[in-house]
Simulated scan of single mutants.
Amino acid sequence: MSRSIAPSKPASPGRPKDPAKRVAVLEAAKRMFIQHGFDGVSMDQIAAEAGVSKLTVYSHFGDKDSLFTEAVRAHCEQGMPTQLFEPTPDTPLRQRLTVIANAFLAMVLSPEAIAGHRVLCSPQVAGSQLPTMIWEAGPARVNAAFSALLERRIAAGELAIDDPQRAAGHFFTLLKGDLHARAVMGSCCGGASTCGDSIDQHIASVIDLFLRAYAIP
């Protein structure tokens, strides 16, 4: 039976919030969600782990759903920061794709990301609004940034793509391949470096396929 989750509460207004405490709460939340799952952690426990009051946790994040979402957002922004997608027209396309692909696989195959994926697939969470919140905080941001990069390369005459957003989905799905599924199932637990063939070879083959589909000769 899926759990029912009330709409996320906005963080409460009040005196200026301490950025250091916000970071401490996020780091504590990431550790505890990975160790105990979403339903196995309370806001009281996160506050104690972070060394702050429960009121501080609620004032920064509103509720546990929002805290989990922000933890995911922080992980994605650390693994694939905005500058990764900034315009660099002088950089060869294959080189840009290779850098992005390496960052993406390092992020999604990290122990933190695999643990978070398992949490989202749990029956308690799957039927809630949390997966949608996570999608908007993480994958949707990455897809949008990569789509914008593709649009710039289309305008430069390097790519022929009718639907850049769909093509972005193709790229990241191809990169995951069976590596991500195996990591989630626990059949390869050492991160990207130990999953199947060489990551470099895997990335090169994905980029070859992507460019055969969309590159202008």
Rank of each mutant, 00 (worst) to 15 (best):
F104N: 09
F104I: 03
L105Y: 10
L105T: 05
M107G: 13
V108M: 15
S110C: 08
P111R: 14
P111W: 09
E112T: 06
A113S: 07
A113D: 04
I114N: 00
A115I: 00
A115F: 00
H117M: 13
H117G: 03
R118I: 08
R118F: 09
R118S: 01
V119T: 10
V119S: 04
L120M: 12
S122L: 00
S122T: 11
P123R: 03
Q124D: 13
Q124F: 00
Q124E: 15
Q124K: 09
A126I: 15
S128F: 12
S128M: 15
S128Y: 04
S128W: 14
L130R: 12
P131M: 09
P131E: 10
T132S: 15
T132M: 15
W135D: 12
A137K: 10
A137I: 03
G138F: 05
G138V: 06
P139L: 08
P139M: 14
A140P: 07
R141Y: 13
N143C: 03
N143V: 10
N143I: 05
A144T: 04
A144M: 09
F146S: 09
A148N: 13
A148G: 11
L150I: 06
E151R: 06
E151A: 14
E151N: 05
R152H: 00
R152Q: 04
R153D: 10
R153E: 07
I154L: 00
A155T: 06
A155M: 09
A156E: 12
